[in-house]
Simulated assay, not measured.
Amino acid sequence: MSEASEGKHGVQSIEIGMQVLRALAGGERAMMLKDIAAIAGMPASKAHRYLVSLIRAGMVEQDRETSLYDLGPLALHVGLAAIDRLDRIQLGLNAIAELRDRVNETTALSVWSENGPIIVRGERPRRAITVNVVTGTALDVLSSASGQIFAAYLPREQISKLIETELSEGRAPVGADSWPAIETMFERVRQTGISAVSGYHLVPGVEAVGAPVFNAGGDITLTMLVVGIQGMFDMRPEGQVVRELIAAANTLSERLGSSRRIVPA
Rank of each mutant, 00 (worst) to 15 (best):
M31F: 09
M32E: 15
L33N: 08
D35L: 05
A37P: 08
G41P: 04
G41K: 05
P43R: 02
P43I: 07
P43M: 00
A44S: 15
A44P: 06
A44Y: 02
A44T: 15
S45H: 11
K46C: 02
H48A: 13
R49D: 13
V52K: 10
V52F: 06
S53G: 15
L54Q: 08
I55N: 01
R56Q: 13
R56G: 09
R56H: 12
V60P: 08
E61H: 07
E61W: 01
Q62T: 14
R64P: 10
S67A: 12
S67C: 01
L68Q: 14
Y69K: 03
L71S: 08
L71Y: 09
L71N: 04
G72M: 02
P73G: 07
L74N: 07
A75L: 00
H77R: 11
V78N: 03
V78Y: 07
V78M: 08
G79I: 03
L80F: 11
L80E: 15
A82S: 12
L86H: 10
D87R: 09
D87M: 01
R88Q: 07
Q90F: 00
L91E: 13
L93G: 06
N94E: 13
R100Y: 02
V103G: 01
N104D: 14
N104S: 13
T106W: 03
T107P: 05
L109H: 04
L109C: 03
S110E: 06
V111A: 06
E114Y: 09
E114C: 03
E114Q: 11
N115D: 14
N115G: 15
G116T: 07
V120Q: 10
V120S: 04
R121H: 13
R121P: 00
R124H: 08
P125N: 05
P125D: 01
P125W: 01
